[in-house]
Computed example of a mutant assay.
Amino acid sequence: MSKQQERPLPAFAARETFFTTAKTGGAEISIAGVPLDIATTNRAGARDGPAAVRRASRMAGGTYPDLWADLYDLDFADVGNFAVLMGKLDESLALIEQQALEHEHLIAVGGDHLVTLPLLRAAAKKHGGPLGLVHFDAHVDTWAENYGVAVTHGTNFRIAINEGLVDPERMVQVGIRCRVEPEVWQWTLDQGVTIITAEDVHMSNPADIATRIHEVVGDEAKTYLTFDIDCFDPSCAPGTGTPEMGGLLAWQARAILTRLGGINFIGMDMVEVAPAYDVGEITALNGASVMAFYMGLLAAAKR
């Protein structure tokens, strides 16, 4: 076998890289940490997300019965953490975009959700925009500003839409349940974005939600996946900066994600894991599992 999981060590002793890979570059898929959290509007700490998810990912790789696809059949590498400039937001965003452009298919681990903006800028340049977007979150992240600031982890997708990085008519948000002003909600809908609330998910079923996602983004055009860990209910993900009650349970997110096969994903990120607030590493494990299911979709597509 050419699988990267051929390792003699038990999980607790395995190397702390993403999914224990020994590769540090030169792979078809790059996994990078993006430890930036200076755009956070509530609890800071997502800068430590990449390290926590790396550790938890030792228990998240391999084959799952959902797909019967082994992520270790993929050629992937842990390329380390992207460089950021301490306390300098604009410069850090430019630096993240520059580094992201060096990778063909990037899986990024934040950091707060603003890191998605430079990642989308890079993806749109590399793959051609506007892109479709599948966005799991508790928050719409389409505010014009947060607390008088125009560039935060809550304004990233308004900026992305206005810059033409994503096609709002091929953008679907799943798990939304935040406090939000009516004008922000309406602006989002007016752009053509499809909002599937957490209650919509709870009152429906994962298969129907996945079907709706397929209908919105299509299966041919290039699409990006972004997953904010606060899409999960705090019972499943306490370790995040802005938790919201009533979110998706882990089984629901898993069942939806594993039904997204066939979508032409060209990259993803998983953000907002803040391990200082975690309990028993469950947030980090759920974050690593989200990545594993995404990689399972890629592995299934190669069969």
Rank of each mutant, 00 (worst) to 15 (best):
E6S: 14
F12G: 07
A14R: 14
E16Y: 08
F19V: 08
K23V: 02
T24A: 12
G25H: 12
A27T: 15
I31K: 05
G33Y: 02
G33P: 05
L36N: 08
I38T: 14
A39R: 03
A39D: 03
N42K: 05
G49N: 00
P50G: 01
P50I: 01
A51W: 06
A52M: 07
R55S: 08
R58A: 06
M59F: 01
Y64L: 10
D66H: 12
D66S: 11
D66F: 08
A69F: 11
D73V: 09
D73A: 14
L74C: 14
D75P: 15
F76L: 15
G87W: 15
L89H: 06
L89I: 15
D90A: 13
S92W: 07
L93I: 01
A94C: 03
L95G: 08
A100F: 06
L101V: 00
L106P: 10
I107Y: 10
G110Q: 00
D112Q: 05
H113W: 03
L114M: 12
V115N: 02
T116E: 00
A122V: 08
A122P: 01
A123I: 00
A124W: 09
A124P: 09
A124I: 11
K126S: 13
K126R: 15
G128N: 09
P130A: 10
L131C: 06
L131T: 04
L133N: 03
F136K: 02
D137I: 07
A138S: 12
H139G: 05
H139A: 02
D141L: 09
W143Q: 03
W143S: 01
A144F: 03
E145T: 06
A150P: 09
G154M: 04
T155I: 08
N156D: 04
F157Y: 10
R158K: 12
E163C: 08
L165E: 02
E169T: 12
V174D: 01
R177L: 12
C178H: 12
E181S: 14
E181L: 14
E181P: 09
P182H: 14
Q186D: 11
L189R: 15
L189F: 07
Q191R: 15
V193D: 02
I195W: 11
I195E: 11
I196D: 02
T197F: 02
A198I: 08
E199P: 06
S204A: 13
S204P: 13
N205F: 11
H214C: 02
V216D: 04
V216I: 12
V217R: 02
G218V: 06
T226R: 04
F227N: 04
D228M: 05
I229V: 15
D230A: 11
P238W: 11
P238I: 10
G239V: 05
T240I: 09
T242Y: 09
G247P: 13
Q252A: 14
Q252H: 15
I256G: 05
L260F: 07
L260D: 03
G261V: 06
I266P: 01
G267E: 05
M268G: 07
D269P: 09
M270K: 00
A276L: 11
D278N: 13
G280C: 14
T283R: 14
L285F: 15
A288G: 10
M291E: 07
L297A: 07
L298C: 06
K302N: 11
